[in-house]
Write a protein that binds this DNA or RNA. Structure first.
Length: 502
RNA sequence: GGCCCGUUCGUCUACCGGUUAGGACGCCAGAUUUUCAUUCUGGAAAUAGGGGUUCGAUUCCCCUACGGGCUACCA
């Protein structure tokens, strides 16, 4: 009988949620849903010095926007709570002490200053195998000395005692067989002087407590995998160990290296899912959401960064991703982030989405510009007319503003030089001949026949007409615009433009 | 430096021993659009190098090169 699938996304609430983090959450979520399992959000807030107000709520909000809904979380609770590590503090010390009692860990009294000095003195200092007997810890001090130091509340940490000459290996679901020489892994701190566990202890203790079956995390965790594996064994849970998978990293588009927020700032694209305002500096970093990405597109493009279903299919809904996801098809190599392709995904999604489903967000975009759109039927028509030309949701306003408000200024250079009294006469005649309820083809027909009567080429008149209605050289078919605007508004725009073109 | 992981068009990737090495983004050209975008058609563009294994390697193994990650009382 297979173990029930339970996976978790365990971010540290220290700031904006990076797209790599969202992808890790997404792959966890997809795997869970694919296998009728449980997706858990656990907050790893063991570093009190890095606590950032609001970060936890922000992370939950980013995931919700993406449609990644946890089954258990700090907000929701669940039978394995609490889901915030700071609230699980009392439990960790017990494990640390159990490890010491069993000879798998030890107390260390070295001060941060002593360690710094050591690192300066010895270039490749590694607190472990070779050096631990030269440090101040319960391995070198007598039992009485240790007891005395403990009794007087001397600050100390607990370190894992890496075994000698062992090889720790495991099968990574993505990478296959991976192995480490324990002589080269250091005695990582398990419990900090403030009594909080480090990631290493907390992650193992909580994954066990929450009955996590599979661990999907970024490749940056690969080097600490042997510590975690040993901890599972040392704590006596070796046969309950989850399966591991280390996801490839998302790299910066130029050069190499992990994608960071700074790269986004430098290259001009978002890195965070949603805008994040640093509570200390007040600086806001824009996110994909605020830049006009649809959550469906964001999730889609993230899924395709390091995964594919083996076919040429590139556009996936979340349910489709769940259906076709498999961890075996995740690639091993890191992927450079390509913002151009990201925009393409968004464009595809905008084209794919019905106007009715775009209505609310378009109205929001306008509201942000201080404009209230209250004729939904009209707005829907406008959306259908322009959505194919929008890469980002924020493009809707620039692409359609003239449907809601007459152009404030005209691209005069576009008509200038070619403008003539004859053309003005033509437009006056066209304006006077406009009748209610004429369809776009009828408007066009009328326009062309009238042009012929005036001995003018329609081609020379359409651009000026466009400038009259739109203000610039863009937008859908000019008669479609005129039809959508309605006869009264079209007339108004022609006459105001005629005055401006003089 | 040490350890670990990786390496197919510029980018994301497919082909899990036998293909003219396929698709997508971007780019270029043409068509459509009497604007711009969309759309359509076509094009240039890749198996890092060297050894093995094999009848046959992009595919399996080794070495080299290159890239990345980790190397905190951060996660």
């Amino acid at each position: 009988m297979e173990k029930k699938v339970r996976v978790r996304f365990a971010p540290s609430p220290t700031g904006g949620l990076h797209l790599g983090g969202v992808r890790t959450a997404l792959f966890n979520y997809l795997f869970a849903k694919k296998h009728n399992g449980t997706f858990i959000l656990r907050v790893e807030d063991t570093d009190q010095t890095r606590f950032v107000a609001g970060a936890e709520e922000y992370i939950a909000s980013c995931l919700a926007w993406c449609g990644i809904h946890p089954d258990e979380s700090p907000e929701l609770g669940g039978e394995f709570g609490p889901y915030r590590q700071s609230e699980r503090k009392p439990g960790y010390r017990k494990y640390a002490e159990q490890l010491i009692a069993d000879g798998y860990a030890y107390y260390a009294f070295d001060t941060p200053e002593e360690l710094d000095a050591k690192r300066k003195e010895i270039p490749n200092f590694l607190y472990g195998q070779a050096s631990r007997m030269g440090m101040r810890n319960s391995l070198t001090l007598s039992e009485a000395e240790v007891a005395a130091l403990l009794a007087q509340n001397m600050p100390h940490v607990v370190r894992i005692k890496m075994p000698e000459d062992e090889n720790v290996s495991f099968v990574d679901m993505i990478r296959g067989h991976v192995s480490f020489d324990t002589n080269l892994v250091d005695d990582k701190v398990l419990l900090k002087a403030d009594g909080m566990p480090t990631y290493h202890l907390a992650v193992v203790a909580d994954d066990r407590a929450m009955q996590i079956s599979h661990i999907f995390r970024g490749e940056e965790w690969l080097p600490s995998a042997p510590i975690h594996i040993l901890l599972w064994r040392y704590l006596g849970w070796g046969d309950e160990m989850p399966k591991w998978a280390h996801l490839p990293l998302i790299l910066k588009p130029d050069g190499n290296g992990k994608l960071s927020k700074r790269d986004g700032d430098r290259l001009g694209f978002p890195v965070y899912a949603q805008s994040w305002t640093d509570p200390k500096t007040g600086d806001t970093t824009k996110g994909f959401r605020e830049l006009g990405f649809m959550p469906e597109a964001f999730v889609n493009l993230l899924a395709m960064l390091g995964w594919n279903d083996g076919t040429d299919k590139e556009i996936f809904t979340l349910p489709e991703l769940i259906e076709s996801f498999s961890i075996e098809r995740v690639s091993k190599a890191g992927a450079k982030f390509d913002f151009e392709k990201a925009k393409w995904y968004n464009h595809e999604w905008i084209k794919l989405t019905a106007a009715e489903n775009l209505l609310a967000v378009v109205k929001e975009e306008y509201a942000a510009e201080g404009m209230v759109l209250n004729d939904d039927n009209y707005t829907l028509k406008v959306i259908d007319l322009i959505k194919d030309r929008c890469n980002l949701l924020t493009d809707f306003v620039t692409q359609s503003k003239y449907f809601f408000t007459a152009p404030a200024e005209y691209d005069l250079p576009a008509v200038k030089g070619k403008w003539s009294p004859e053309k003005a006469t033509f437009f006056t005649a066209y304006l006077n001949g406009l009748e209610d309820n004429q369809s776009a083809p009828e408007l066009e027909e009328k326009f062309k026949s009238l042009a012929a009567e005036h001995n003018l080429k329609p081609g020379e008149l359409m651009l000026p007409f466009r400038i009259m209605l739109v203000g610039g050289k863009f937008g859908p078919g000019v008669f479609d615009i005129a039809f959508a605007l309605g006869v009264a508004e079209t007339k108004k725009r022609i006459s105001s433009a005629l005055a401006a073109f003089e």
